[in-house]
């Protein structure tokens, strides 16, 4: 009972703190000076139509490299925690999972290529439209999830997935280093021509970086999903 009272009091204190914050909150009616610079100069400076992408990939590109690293570490952690857990349970043999109904299987055969293509579309157009590497990669991974729903015994080709993931991670860092030698600094996108504003091949190395991030996130999340499914 004392515990419940304690929980209630804690929540009440936090709620009072939040209320104080919310009651003084006024929606901004203009941009902060830093954001103003990004919005005013970003399109000419970097050639990206999507300013969130300009911030994520170039202005704060180092954060994004850290983010990709965290995602990689968590995928590795999931692999480490869940690898070989079937071998320990030799006592209770793992029966094959039931395949789902024909309806689901047919629908997935139709939807899987579209889902994958949509994921690629999202990360290729990340510098022009809402979306980007992480979103596109998540769509690709949801395609993998569809596959596992229809065919629970499906297996991913670990060789190809591993190669693709290492290649894209390495490529991302390499593109960042090229920025140091050929342009203004690490992850600077301007060592490739900026091109015509708003076209697919524009904004320097930004589409390249987002394609690599998209491939990396897509393969990583697919492998994580397969780990959770159990092999």
């Amino acid at each position: 009972m004392a515990k419940r009272l304690f929980i209630f009091l804690t929540l009440l204190a936090v709620a009072a703190m939040f209320f104080d914050f919310a009651s003084h909150f006024r929606p901004a009616d203009k941009l902060s000076p830093l954001a103003e610079h990004y919005v005013a100069e970003g399109p000419q400076e970097l050639g990206a139509a999507n300013l969130v992408t300009a911030v994520v990939v170039t202005y704060r590109g180092l954060d994004t490299l850290g983010e990709v690293t965290v995602l990689f570490l968590s995928a590795a952690g999931v692999g480490l925690l869940l690898a070989g857990r079937r071998k320990r349970e030799d006592a209770e043999p793992q029966e094959d999972l039931h395949p789902s109904s024909e309806l689901v299987q047919t629908a997935v055969q139709f939807l899987l290529p579209i889902a994958m293509l949509f994921g690629v579309y999202i990360f290729v157009n990340g510098h022009l439209t809402p979306g980007g590497g992480f979103q596109g990669g998540a769509v690709i991974a949801s395609g993998t999830l569809l596959l596992f729903l229809a065919l629970p015994n499906a297996k991913l080709h670990h060789g190809i997935m591993g190669e693709l993931e290492s290649f894209s991670g390495f490529g991302y860092v390499l593109v960042g280093l090229l920025g140091i030698f050929l342009a203004g600094g690490f992850l600077d996108n301007r060592f490739l021509p900026l091109g015509d504003f708003g076209r697919l091949l524009s904004a320097g190395a930004m589409p390249l970086i987002y394609v690599l991030i998209g491939l990396k996130v897509g393969t990583e999340l697919s492998v994580v999903l397969e780990r959770f499914k159990g092999e």
């Binding site: 990004y38 300013l51 994520v56």
Partner: peptide, 10 residues
């Protein structure tokens, strides 16, 4: 403001 959106994406 694009910066909080980028932070939230991360």
């Amino acid at each position: 403001d694009p910066i909080p959106s980028a932070l939230v994406l991360t």
